[in-house]
Write a protein that binds this DNA or RNA. Structure first.
Lengths: 335, 335
DNA sequence: ATGAAAGCGCTAACAT
DNA sequence: ATGTTAGCGCTTTCAT
């Protein structure tokens, strides 16, 4: 087992050239084709992509790097990236960086060694230099979820600002004026900033004064969300509604809420982020902003493949996908 | 950009052998070492693992194949597998098979082509032939989460039977006698069977008669869990407690419950599976059986690495890790 | 349509 | 300690 092209040649009485031609879809005499098919099946031959990669300078592998596997967010994206890439013949090497920027840079170096043809990643501005290096090496790259300003790279994101603005406007339309915001503390990050901007825009559009105390940030985690909610609840007068801008913090915030004895939506209206089906496991079912994860993954994969095929000498594109505000029972109108 | 060992040799005035020796940690004159370090840095040289793989017949890549990325379960496992493998110098190629057995077989074939040194996967008995082929090719393999009887392969699982038995016994000790069970419908699967066996064992140990109508199965999904719970609630007399044996179905079951207007734990006590922190987002906080996901991943990676290094000509091992029953507020004692 | 041979970047004898 | 060279499995001229 582990037959090579040479074995196939020997056993079929043909030359390696002909075998190679055959497995690459070239023209071969009908009778030879039959012999080859048989031999290949018999030997369990599978073309050695490593050797092919060395020769052709294309490994047919792409690296996907995300800051965390916690939460559903990146996972669902990766699932779709992997599936899309497979259709194009690419394999997906995953890297979980566990929120560690140095680790991210290191994993990118490792990917160089693996000769990946492309990289999809959720970038952090701190590693901008590393990303420039990737591009400089001529490796195709696509950003997802967020971008780094000043780096010319294709990117697939969602309409973060609208997403937050719609959610908050909806709360305002139900009579809420004291609305909390819990978001991720990486204020330098485009995505976080945009969501905050949407929150602000909704207030401005409605002529409602902004209260800095109602805008909380914290680390992207269960505990981060819980702590932020706790601090938010300390404010007097208390908020009557709150938007939490990512799934992990949403869960933590819910925990803090019921620990504090607050009922949803009687005491406070809540809109969370992502969570997909899990949002419907709560009672009352949770309203959320849903991101099109599958679409993000697919789109990123498509763009990357085109870049790797050098089909697009065109300029970089920023694809912005639409989110959906899913209204369920966790919000109520103020009487 | 994309410098080779030859470039380094040329620019440093040394031979490729010396360069090779150096990058592999061999002895080199101190002055040459200095020159090489400098040259390598200057050229941004990174050893081409594809070429090395071809030469050494070790790609330093392993494939990880799971039936789904839905739910937290496999993701958290993969995160730890990836991290552990990286420490040993291996990269992780992921494959999400989306519950499609044919797709699984195909992805395994693709992994052959990639020359992976090992494979970690959650097996399905239907693909037993494929797994035998993997082993037959001399590729290291470790099963996780479940096993396929009759295949001699290392495996890392949890004490499924105890896990279910403990959970159900706990409910019984609180006075419950009509206890539902919602489990996955792949009855041929070892893991599912073991959990059912634990449920049965708990009844037998307590001398409580078994009601077949209280044992429900369904597809592993939100809707599957919801449907199963709905059917369970139709039974008269109704169950006073229920164990759901996986995270996705747990969420669906909770949804069915509050749609049916049942309160936890007043009307029904619930113990779910996995869910990690998310379990604490519910009100009341959900009792769960927690699997040591990180440990499963780490252990599987360790065993695989040892196999790949041929350190273990020993016989196959079945590692069984302990689960933990985490009691929270979703269960009550019957008065 | 088929075959012979060179070479992708690396490692590992083997010789010095 | 360093250098020369063959060859891993494949693709690709270049002949035939």
């Amino acid at each position: 087992l582990g037959a090579t092209i040479k074995d196939v040649a020997k056993h079929s009485g043909l030359s390696v050239t002909t075998v190679s031609k055959f497995i690459n879809g070239g023209n071969v005499l009908a009778e030879n084709r039959a012999v080859l098919e048989k031999t290949i099946k018999r030997l369990g031959f599978e073309v050695n992509q490593v050797a092919r990669g060395l020769k052709c300078n294309r490994s047919m592998m792409v690296g996907v790097i995300v800051p965390t596997f916690e939460g559903q967010f990146f996972m669902r994206m990766i699932s779709n990236i992997e599936n899309s890439l497979m259709r194009y013949g690419y394999s997906t090497i995953v890297c979980d960086c566990r929120q560690d920027l140095a680790l991210e840079a290191e994993k990118i170096r490792l990917l160089y060694g693996k000769q990946v043809d492309g990289i999809i990643l959720a970038p952090s501005p701190e590693n901008a230099g590393t990303y420039r290096d990737v591009l400089g090496r001529g490796i195709a790259m696509v950003f997802v979820d967020t971008i780094v300003e000043g780096i010319a790279c294709d990117a697939v994101v969602v309409d973060n600002r609208n997403a937050a603005q719609n959610a908050v406007s909806n709360l305002i339309s139900r009579g809420h004026t004291r609305i909390g915001l819990i978001s991720m503390d990486r204020t330098t990050r485009y995505t976080a900033r945009e969501r905050v901007a949407g929150y602000v825009a909704a207030h401005e559009a409605a002529g409602i004064p902004l209260h800095r105390e109602y805008m909380r940030e914290g680390p992207v985690s269960f505990d981060g969300g819980g702590a932020a909610m706790l601090r938010l609840l300390d404010e007097k007068p208390r908020v009557t509604a709150c938007l939490v801008t990512n799934d992990e913090m949403t869960l933590g915030a819910l925990n803090a809420l019921h620990r504090g004895g607050l009922r949803i939506p009687q005491d406070i209206s809540i809109i969370g982020f992502d969570l997909n089906e899990a949002a419907r496991a709560f009672s009352p079912e949770l309203s959320t902003v849903a991101q099109p994860l599958s679409q993000i993954g697919e789109t990123a994969a498509d763009i990357l493949v085109r870049r790797m095929n050098k089909e697009k000498p065109s300029s970089e594109m920023l694809v912005q996908l639409k989110t959906e505000l899913i209204l369920r029972d966790s919000i109520r109108a103020l009487s």
